[in-house]
Simulated scan of single mutants.
Amino acid sequence: MLDETAKGVFTIAVTPFTSDGALDLDSVDRMTDFYLEKGATGLTVLGMMGEAGKLTAEESLSVVKRVVARADVPVVVGVSSPGFASMTALSDSVMEVGAAGVMIAPPGSVRTDDQIVTYYQNAAKAVGDAPWVLQDFPLVTGVQIAPKVILKIVEECPKCVMLKHEDWPGLEKISALRKASDEGARRISILCGNGALFLPEEMARGADGAMTGFAYPEMMAQIVEAANAGDMDRARDIFDAYLPMVRYESQPGLGLAIRKYTLAKRGAIADGALRAPGPKLSAATIAEIEALATRQERALARLG
C-alpha cells in the first residue's frame, strides 16, 4: 500500500490508443515495461494527462488491471470525479485489483478554505480505507490550496499520504510544508508534477521526487538520484540537457500529443494517437520535436 515514505519517480502514464481510437492494451504492457526500465519507482494511471475522461468505466478498469499485473511497483490511480458515488465505485474497483492508492483532485466548485477541507473530508470517506494522494494543480482546477489548508486536511484525514504538488509558483509551498513537518506536523510524501519544469529546485526544497509524465522519465530518475546524493550541480546539469524538450512538451493544449509522439518514437507505445477530441501534430511541429531530440542527444553525450 502507498504510504508517507513514497519517494522517487511515479511516472504519469499515458493511455495508448490505436490510430482509430481503440484502446491498445498491448501497448499498455510495452509502456509499463518502458517506464520501469527508465527508473520509475511507481506508476500513476488515469491522471489528467492519461485521457481518463475519454475512457468508459470498463476501459478504465481494464487499463488498471493491465498495469497492476505487469508492474512490480506501486500503482496509483486517479479517481477524481464530480460525484462521490462514482469516485467510490472506481476506487473500490481499482483497489480490489491491486492498486496501491488513489489520487483525488478538487472540483472547480470549491473555493474557500472551509469548502476545500470539507470536500476532502467527504472524499476521504468516499474512498474508505484506500491511501490517497491530494492533487494540487490550480493551473487546471482553478482551486488554490494554501499550505495551512493542506496541513489541516493531512491532520484530519490519516489516509492522505501524499501531495502531488503542481502549484506554480509553488516552491515556497514545499518549504512551508516541510517546515511544518519539522516542527511536528505529520509528514507526508511530496511528489512534483508540472512536467518536471522545476524538479531540481523542488528537490532542493524538500520534495521526495517526481510524479509527472515527461517522455524521458530517465531524466527524472537521474535528477532525483543526484539530488538525494547531495550533488545538485549534477542534477542541474542533467536538467539543462533536457530543458529544451521539457519546455517544448509543456505547451498547453499540445503537450500530450507531443509526449505521445515521442513515446511512440522511443518504442514505448505503438501509436502516438490521442482519442478524439484531441489535436494532431503538424509536419512543422514534428520537425521541431525531431530537431530538439537530436540536440538533446548531443547535449547528453557531452554531459557523459
Rank of each mutant, 00 (worst) to 15 (best):
E37H: 10
P169I: 04
T44N: 10
F34S: 11
C160D: 07
V14D: 06
L23D: 09
A276M: 11
L43V: 13
M162I: 10
F34C: 08
A6C: 12
G8C: 11
Q144G: 01
D113P: 05
R236Q: 13
E155M: 00
G53R: 11
I258Q: 02
D72T: 14
S109L: 03
A264N: 02
K164T: 04
S282E: 06
A176E: 13
L274K: 01
F239A: 03
R205F: 02
S282P: 02
S93P: 08
L55Y: 14
T11L: 09
R259D: 02
V133L: 00
S60K: 15
M162Q: 11
L263C: 09
L292N: 12
G39R: 13
G213E: 02
K148G: 00
Y119T: 01
P200I: 01
M203F: 03
R111P: 10
P277C: 04
I223M: 02
G50T: 13
D167N: 04
D29F: 10
A299P: 14
Q121V: 00
L23R: 12
P16N: 14
V143C: 06
K148Y: 15
V149I: 12
R30I: 07
A22R: 15
A235H: 09
S175I: 08
V133Q: 07
A85E: 07
R30H: 13
A227G: 00
V77F: 13
F137D: 06
G142R: 13
T112E: 08
A124D: 11
T118S: 14
P252G: 09
V76T: 11
A241G: 03
Y35R: 08
I269M: 04
L163G: 03
Y248P: 13
G170Q: 05
G255C: 05
R259N: 06
Y248A: 01
